[in-house]
Amino acid sequence: MATTIARKYKIASLRLLVENTPDLTCSDRLEPFATDEPETDYRLRFCPSESDEPEHAECGPRLDSIITDEYQYRWSIYTDSLGREGVTLSFDTHEWLQWADALIDGREVTIAYRKKAGAALGSTYIFPLFNLIMNRLLNRNRGIAVHSSVVCDGGRGYLFTAVSGTGKSTMAKIWERAGATIVNDDAIMVDTNPETPVAHNIPMPYYTDVPKSAPLDAIFLISQSPVNVLEPVTGAAAAMQFMTNTVHHSHAADSIERHLQSINRICSRVPIFRLGFKPDADVVDLIRKTNLTEHLTQWRKSTSAN
């Protein structure tokens, strides 16, 4: 008789009970996030399938095919005939997986999957399915995913966001050399439930990390510059620029509204700055020496006076 192995993880404030099957191992990407907290927010249940195609392959809006160095896959978000939301993926290239489909029904997430014939053991961390599920669950729980790096400097959390190639990882390394801790240098989940929103790392596909988090004291919209320039930005302009680098949920009106509410909560509680920076330790000194709250207050006074 098949044995189900259940493990509890806490990822970006969400407590997940993951029930796998004998042909899947507990992922070493997830294990550092194991928790013994008794309560569970969602149960993720893996179910092997013999079907050649996922049941929901052709329903719902179809999103773009994604090609990475390792995998080529197509994915879509769907709503089934009972109004339940799900995510489905089909892989063109994957070492053990043919397709996977996560159906969210209240607090239950059923992950159907089809292994390739003769493939070795798989693992409970399926990239990018796990990230897509997390994005959907966070959207329902006042959370958002942000393409950003976050550092924790003496208990103060700073988020640096920009399009790829601008210097998010470079910025994180500069802070690390100055004694700060990198929460993550690329993918961040922000929980907007606390009065001060909290940035969390999540399991990463290409390396194993431990859980890290930081309350957000400031958000920086970064760009490269010959000199360091720090300028507050407020209102809808700030929110829109920040939102550009978040994972959007634009396939359904209720998802968009929840996303906008989370953006509003962050932008009303965390000051946002434009930061032009040159990649050396001076930018750390600038931020450490600047009273960001006072800087924002003074800037608001000067702009209202003008």
Binding site: P61, R62, T234, A236, L260, N264
Partner: peptide
């Protein structure tokens, strides 16, 4: 919807 006191229009779309 409102974002920081201003109205924004976000399209419902089927493509990233």
């Amino acid at each position: 919807n409102d974002i920081c006191g201003e109205k924004v229009l976000v399209p419902i779309v089927n493509s990233v």
